[in-house]
């Protein structure tokens, strides 16, 4: 519970800092480029780890099928909720077989 409150506080202070700090501090283009890439690498890493990771082991299971279906759905510009439902359905079907 403590960690829940700490992460909430951290993220709120990050938002608030933008309203309190003079903006010249972050105007550096190098800083901007790194900042654009940070969500890309973290979210990609999360996709991979949540698909293949099981504690400290790597496994291939029903989740991979679900994520591949999600990728196909995104490729065809499916809306977000539909993409998630398709991924869940695929994974659940394989899990239950």
């Amino acid at each position: 519970m403590t960690s829940v409150l700490i992460v909430c506080g951290t993220c709120y202070l990050l938002k608030l800092s933008g309203y309190l700090i003079p903006d010249s501090l972050f105007a550096n283009p190098r800083f901007q480029r790194i900042n654009t890439l940070i969500p890309v690498v973290l979210l990609s890493a999360l996709v991979a780890v949540q698909t293949f990771g099981s504690k400290s082991a790597l496994v291939i299971d029903q989740r991979l099928a679900g994520v591949l279906v999600a990728a196909i759905a995104l490729k065809f510009k499916a809306p977000f909720p539909l993409m998630m439902v398709l991924a869940a359905l695929t994974s659940a079907l394989i899990y239950r077989i």
Binding site: T51, A65, G66, A88, S91
Partner: peptide
């Protein structure tokens, strides 16, 4: 797992990162 929620979570991350993959370099990264 029985309801596919275990795959919905990585799918959600994929949906979040997808619109950011705007060029070949970003995709490679």
């Amino acid at each position: 797992s029985a309801w596919g929620l275990d795959a919905a979570v990585p799918a959600a991350f994929l949906g979040l990162v997808w619109p950011r993959l705007i060029d070949k370099r970003t995709q490679l990264i």
